[in-house]
Amino acid sequence: MKILFLGDVVGNIGVDKVSQYLPILKRDYKPQLTIVNGENATSFGRGINKKVYKEIMNAGADVITLGNHAWNNEEIFDFIDDTEKLVRPLNFPGKNVPGRGYTIVNINGKKLAVINLQGRIFMDPIDDPFAEVDELVNKLNHEVDYIFVDFHAETTSEKRAMAMYLDGRISALVGTHTHVQTNDNQVLPKGTAFITDAGMCGPFDSVLGMKYENIIHRFLTQRPTRFEVETSGNGIISGCVIDLRDDGTARSIKKILINPNNPYQG
C-alpha cells in the first residue's frame, strides 16, 4: 500500500502547482491513496472553499485534511457535512462540530482510516489530541487495516511525542502546519512512518507562503502588519510517499520536494 501526501496548500500558486504536479506524481509513484492538506488553499491563504476543494480533488486527491484555519471561510459550513473526503481536526471542542475528524477509505478490499488532529502548544485552545486520538485508535484498530494521521501542530516536540505515543498502533503520522519540510523522515521502532512536517505547496519566493516584504516590516518595526499571500513568482511542492506492508506497518517514508533548486526529475 502506497500513500502520497502533499503538505499545506497555500493560495492560488499552491493550488496551481498541485494541479500541475499531482497527476505527474501519481503517475510516477502509483499510490493507492492520495491525501492533500488544504488548510490554507483559498486565495487569501486561510481555510478552504468549495471551488478550491473541487480543484484539488479534480487534480487527484482522494482525501483533503485541514487544520486550525478550517473555519476561516464561512462557505465551508455549506458543504463540509456533505462530503466524507474533507476531514477537519478531530479534537475541535464542543458538541455537534460540523464535518468529521476522520474518514475510512476502502482500497482494494483493505480499509484505511485518515485522521486529522490539531496540536495545542502555541495554538488556539482545543481539546486534548492525545486523549481524543487514543480513544479513536483503540476503536479503529478493530475496524481497519491501516491508520494515517495528519497532525497539524506548531512544535516539533508535540508532533514527535504524538508519533512516539502512537508508534506501532498506527501506520503513519505526518506533521503539517509549519510550512517548512523537515529532514527527519523515518520509520519508528514499532513500525510507524513519521516526519515532523511535510512542508507546503505554495509560493517559493515568500515567507511561509506570505509576501516577505510585509513580514520583514513587522520584524523591523514590531508593528502590526497584514499578512498577504504571495501571488507571483516560483512555486514549491512538498510532501512524502509512504510504503506500507500488509500488516499495517511502514516499510519506508520518502520526502518529495520540488522547487527551483530541486527540479522534478521524474
Rank of each mutant, 00 (worst) to 15 (best):
K54T: 12
I24D: 05
H69V: 13
S19A: 10
V52A: 10
V15A: 11
Y53L: 13
I64V: 14
V15M: 02
I64F: 11
N37C: 09
A70I: 11
S19L: 09
Y21K: 11
N37K: 03
I35C: 12
K30N: 09
S19Y: 02
Q20R: 09
D8R: 09
A41D: 01
E39G: 12
V10D: 07
N68F: 07
T34D: 05
R27Q: 15
G38S: 15
V52K: 02
P23H: 09
M57E: 08
I48Q: 07
G60L: 06
L33G: 07
V36G: 02
H69S: 09
I35K: 03
V63N: 05
M57A: 10
M57G: 10
L25N: 06
E39N: 15
G11S: 06
K50H: 12
T65I: 11
E55C: 03
N49I: 12
D28S: 06
Y53M: 12
G60V: 05
I13N: 06
I24L: 15
K54W: 06
N68H: 14
T65W: 14
V18D: 09
K51R: 09
N49F: 01
Q32Y: 14
D8T: 05
N40D: 11
D8N: 00
S19G: 12
G47K: 05
E55R: 13
T65H: 14
L66I: 05
K54F: 00
G38M: 12
V15Y: 02
E55M: 09
D8K: 01
Q20D: 07
T65Q: 04
Y53S: 01
L25V: 11
A61D: 06
D16K: 09
K50E: 11
N58R: 11
G38I: 10
V63D: 13
G47L: 15
L22R: 04
G45Y: 01
I13Q: 08
L33R: 04
Y53C: 08
D8F: 13
P31W: 03
A61R: 03
G11C: 01
G60R: 08
N37R: 06
T42C: 01
V15F: 05
N12M: 02
R27Y: 13
V18T: 13
G60F: 07
R27S: 15
T34Y: 08
L25A: 08
A59E: 02
A41R: 08
A70S: 15
E55T: 07
Y21L: 14
G14P: 01
